[in-house]
Structures are given as C-alpha cells and as structure tokens.
Amino acid sequence: MARILDEPPILLSEVLQGDARLTPKWAHGGLKEDYMRGVTGHIAVGCYEGQHQISWRIENKLLDSRTNPKAFTLIPQGVDGHWNIAGPVVVSHVYLTQERLQACADEIAGGRRIELLPRVAFTDPAAAGLLEILSQEAERDSASSRLFAERAIDLLCLRLVQEHSSFGSLPAQDRKGGLAGWQVKRVTAFMDEFLNRHIGLDELAALVDLSRFHFCTAFRRSTGQTPHEWLTGQRMKRARELLARSRLSVTEVGFAVGYETPSAFAAAFRKRVGVTPSAFRRAL
C-alpha cells in the first residue's frame, strides 16, 4: 500500500493481540488507476475528511462510491485491483490478521472459516465509528488505552463478521453453508443466459459477493451439484434441444452451448448423455 500512496500509513509501533496494528489519522493524496497487490491480512479504512469519488476495480467487478465519515472501506487479504480516489483524504487504518478475525468469529460462526467481502466507502456508521475510536486510541500511549483498543477491535471484528463477510451475507436460515434462494436463482439464470461462452468461477462468485472458495461450497450445499456440474447439465439440455429442433450442424450446436472445439463438445455430450451428438440426432 505504501508504494501507491504519496504519504504512507503511519503505523503504530505497538503490536496488539493477534498481530493487529493501528494507525492514527493521516492525510494522503488521490489515486488514479493505481494497482495494489493483495496483502497479507485484512485492512479496514475509516475516512474523516475529503468527500470524493472512490472506486476499486477487481478483475471484472467495479466497486465505486463516495468517501464520507459514515462509511468505511474493507480490503480483504489477498484481494488486488486498481484504485481511483478523486482527491486527498484523511483516513485511518486497522490491520487485522485472519487469526484475530477468526478468534472473534468462532463463537457465532460455529468454527467455519470467515471470508470478508470487499467494500468501498460502504455506509456503516457502526463500523465507521469503531474505526474512528481506534484512530483516537492510536494517538494515546497508556495501558488503559491499549486495553480499550483491544476491546474495540473485538467489536469491529464481530461487526465485520455479522455484516461484511461470507457468514453475514447470508440470511440466518441459510447460514449453515448454502446459498439463499435468490442467490441460486441469480447464478443459474446467469448461466442460462451465457451458455454460449466461457463462464468462470470468479465471475459467478462475484454475482453474490462471495469468494470463489465459499461460493463453490455454498452452491454445492444448496443444489447438490458443483457449479461445473450444473453448468454442464444446462449446456447438455440446450444442446439436446438444438439438435432436435434446429438446423444447426453438430459443430455449430457445440459453439452455441459454449464449447470451443467439436471434440470437446462431443466428449462432454457423450459422457453426459451416453451417445455422441451425431448419434443422438440420428436416433430422433
């Protein structure tokens, strides 16, 4: 992060429980298409002065908003992308390890690993308020201040788990690991609409704001199939319809349902249906 900022973070020398670190408030300039690599640990950012457009482009997903004191930004560990901030801002940071986050989450998440969601100037007065409190405590040097900061970090971690994580993003009835009904519908409808091209796991996971790992697990628990199995089933269903009702050649049918070569289509069709596409058509 220091590489892309004109004024790097002012990191407090003291390391708190679970290797958590704080900064006081400090000012840095804007950013323009600056690329930041994924970092080890999570970063929660409060913003106190400077109301500007801010955006974070993560692969094919764009998160954008406007900085304000009631909003905060969350950078999960390992997530990279390009940043834009239209002007100078006054901010503070809290650096959290996965271990510190998980220690706070275990009681409510039942021991499941928590995946934080990326946020950009996301309105959450509770999280923003905790970040400001921690920025103030970072400027004091006393045993009571450190103790207060530890408790405030615990509260921040719980807030992130409840409202800004793979656990908190699901309705209570669906937190046993599956997707909510609307999430299944959104993902499967997207598959149906774009069967004619490559569909990646990252693209599907982004539709419901989950990490790739959590999405795959949750989708399987909700549908009984992996995303790949579901997608292949839909492609074969469409292929059978086209072979039966259209004048497209077998090769054209393969292209129409997302296969780049006739051999790949034929192999997938035979594995799923039991015969080659040509044999299926001849038997009609």
Rank of each mutant, 00 (worst) to 15 (best):
I4K: 00
E7K: 09
E7S: 03
P8S: 08
P8N: 08
P9Y: 12
L11C: 12
L12T: 15
L12D: 12
V15G: 00
G18L: 04
D19V: 08
L22C: 09
A27L: 07
G29Y: 06
G29A: 10
G30F: 14
E33D: 15
D34E: 12
D34M: 15
Y35E: 08
M36N: 01
G38I: 03
V39R: 14
G46H: 07
Y48G: 13
Y48W: 15
G50M: 03
G50N: 03
Q51Y: 14
Q53A: 11
Q53S: 14
W56R: 13
W56S: 03
R57E: 08
R57N: 04
K61D: 02
L63R: 02
D64C: 10
R66N: 05
F72S: 05
T73E: 01
T73L: 03
L74S: 01
I75K: 06
I75H: 10
P76G: 09
V79H: 00
V79Q: 04
D80H: 03
H82D: 08
W83A: 05
N84M: 12
I85Q: 06
G87N: 13
P88A: 15
V89A: 02
V90H: 04
V90M: 05
S92A: 14
V94P: 00
V94N: 01
L96F: 07
L96E: 02
Q98W: 04
E99P: 00
A105M: 03
A105W: 03
I114T: 02
L117G: 02
F122H: 15
T123S: 09
A126V: 15
L131R: 06
E132P: 00
E132C: 05
I133P: 01
S135G: 12
Q136L: 12
E137H: 13
E137L: 14
E139Y: 04
E139G: 04
R140S: 12
A143V: 09
S144D: 15
S145R: 11
F148N: 10
A149T: 08
A149R: 13
E150N: 13
E150M: 05
R151V: 11
I153V: 14
L156A: 06
L156V: 07
C157F: 05
L158C: 05
L160E: 14
V161W: 09
H164C: 03
S165T: 05
P171K: 10
A172P: 13
A172N: 10
Q173L: 06
R175S: 09
L179T: 07
L179F: 11
A180I: 06
V184K: 09
T188W: 07
A189G: 05
M191I: 10
M191Y: 05
L195I: 04
L204N: 01
A205E: 00
D209N: 15
R212K: 11
F219Y: 14
T223S: 11
E229V: 14
W230D: 08
L231E: 13
T232S: 06
R238Q: 11
R240C: 13
A244D: 11
A244H: 06
S249D: 13
E252F: 02
V257L: 01
E260C: 02
E260Q: 06
F269Q: 06
V273A: 01
P277H: 07
S278F: 12
